[in-house]
Computed example of a mutant assay.
Amino acid sequence: MKPHLIQLTTTPDLVEQVYARLLDAISEGALQPGERLTQEDLAQRFAVSRQPVLQALRLLKKDGFVEDAPGRGVQVTQLDVAWIAKVYQVRGSLDALAVRLAAERSAQLAPGIFEQGRQAESSQDVKAMVDADLAFHRAIYQASGNPLIAQSIDLHWHHLKRVMGAVLQSSHQRQTVWHEHEAIAQAIAKGDADLAVRLVQEHAYEASLQLTARLSEQLLHKPKTGAHP
């Protein structure tokens, strides 16, 4: 006798689509910290039933991007300085492993990555700057030859995109960022693993200090809103 299986009412693909759209909106700041989200409103905006929205919100809550709101529904999780610092600790360790493996292969990063970064830096387009930074680090993860690195850090990058976008909207990117990126890439290409590791760890540490300091300042001076009724 065949086992009885419960009929599935929601396709995983639809849940994944709603999840991805909401995650992008949160990561890029289209949905602001503290903004309330309801199943009914999101279902109407996405033109889907409430079920895939409910499942997507549960996944976002598990991943730390939304939290229960007072009263009803959920809200976008507030940016937390201590949490971001911890995320940078993880990123620094994975970046160090990635550059060491890439340097052992004397990997060459595509020049277009740096052209993209310089153009974004000149334009002061926040999304372009964040995307260019992500492209550089993803190139290193690919160059490492270990796909588990990119898989392990992908979720953390969405948290980093949130804080990078929030900070860069009101302040400029560090002037040394792409100089640091190029120095890391040169060390990798020369096969100098120890230098590459040192440079990428310094890069991650400095980025963490700068972003968390600016975020702390923003949160300190942020006016109280009706985000928490």
Rank of each mutant, 00 (worst) to 15 (best):
L215P: 12
P111M: 01
Q32K: 12
T225E: 00
I188G: 01
S93C: 06
S171E: 05
L31K: 07
H228E: 01
D63V: 12
P52D: 05
V66D: 02
A25M: 10
A143D: 04
A193Y: 06
D154I: 03
L155R: 14
F46V: 06
H4N: 08
G117N: 00
Q119L: 09
E206C: 05
H4S: 10
L160E: 04
R91K: 14
G92E: 08
A103L: 05
D13S: 14
A135E: 00
W157Y: 10
A213E: 09
E67G: 07
M1P: 10
T10S: 10
T77N: 06
Y88R: 09
E115N: 03
R91V: 13
H221R: 08
W157F: 10
D154W: 02
I140K: 02
L42S: 05
E202L: 13
V126H: 00
A139E: 03
I188W: 01
A96H: 07
H156G: 10
A139N: 03
L22P: 07
Q44K: 12
Q116A: 11
L215K: 11
H203Q: 09
S123I: 01
A30D: 06
Q169H: 11
S122F: 01
W178V: 05
L215T: 13
M129H: 02
I6T: 14
Q142Y: 02
E104L: 10
S49G: 15
L23R: 11
L8N: 12
Q55S: 14
L94Q: 11
Q55E: 14
L60A: 13
A227G: 15
E180C: 04
K222H: 06
Y88N: 14
G73V: 15
G34N: 06
T11R: 13
G117P: 04
P12C: 11
Q175E: 11
V87L: 04
K224F: 02
G29F: 02
L60I: 14
R214L: 09
A103D: 01
Q119E: 06
M1L: 07
A204N: 12
D192A: 13
L14H: 08
L23Y: 03
F114N: 00
Q175V: 12
H4E: 08
